[in-house]
């Protein structure tokens, strides 16, 4: 009953509760947004291990900033977290002074088996294969298109906000999104379509 109520609680109320000393509320926020935040980071850095480290750094920074009273509750929580993630990812690139590691596949990653999904194990495997395949396609997009796609699809930023962050017009941001979606389809057609993805693409 209480858990169900907490799940429906708004972000700003969870943050107030967390500031008041209820650590569990932050756990709820993590569970609510971890996938979108992590996917955003992963698609920027293109490396699972770095993404895991950055995810922790981002969340710890979020905790510190909330406790220091630097979170404006009028703003949206997820876009705020994603902005922090984006900045930390950029800092990471500056520190290592090299291009992000490109991984053609994610087979090396043991964490990929830890995916929450419903249905039979076969369905889970197919779903994860599809997701992995699409992530691979997204990583092949040109940087600017990928950036807009990530910010809109995972970070829940509006095109107006994306335009402001990337310093372009709204029409340019929309145009990049259009090309990103069309190029994804094009890339999927060019490559061999894995089992399962065929069902979702050619419905």
């Amino acid at each position: 009953m209480e858990k169900a109520l907490i799940k429906k609680t708004q972000d700003k109320d969870l943050i107030k509760g967390f500031i008041a000393g209820n650590d569990h509320y932050f756990d709820v926020l993590i569970q609510r947004y971890k996938a979108k935040v992590f996917t955003t980071i992963y698609l920027i850095v293109k490396d699972r291990c770095i993404a895991e480290d950055l995810f922790q750094d981002v969340m710890i920074k979020v905790v510190r900033m909330i406790r220091a009273g630097k979170y404006n509750e009028e703003g949206k929580f997820l876009p705020w977290v994603v902005r922090i993630a984006r900045n930390l990812a950029i800092d990471h690139f500056r520190k290592v002074q090299r291009n992000p590691i490109q991984r053609e596949n994610e087979d090396y990653d043991i964490f990929n088996t830890v995916q929450q999904a419903e249905g039979s194990s076969e369905e889970k495997i197919i779903r994860e294969e599809n997701a992995r395949y699409i992530r691979g396609l997204i990583q092949k997009l040109p940087d600017k298109q990928r950036e807009v796609l990530i910010m809109r699809s995972y970070a829940d930023l509006s095109f107006k906000e994306i335009a402001a962050i990337t310093d372009v017009s709204i029409n340019t941001a929309l145009g990049r999104m259009r090309y990103a979606l069309l190029n994804l389809k094009k890339l999927a057609q060019e490559q061999e379509i894995p089992t399962g993805y065929e069902e979702t693409v050619h419905r």
């Binding site: 650590d23 830890v114 389809k185 979702t200």
Partner: peptide
């Protein structure tokens, strides 16, 4: 056409490891 691609993009989310989340909560 665009909606189908968008739906596929939405399904491509990836979750962090349980350990990462636990470490964050331990810090908290």
């Amino acid at each position: 056409h665009l909606q189908t691609i968008n739906e596929d993009v939405q399904k491509a989310v990836l979750e962090p490891s349980v350990e990462s989340c636990e470490r964050v909560m331990a810090y908290v």
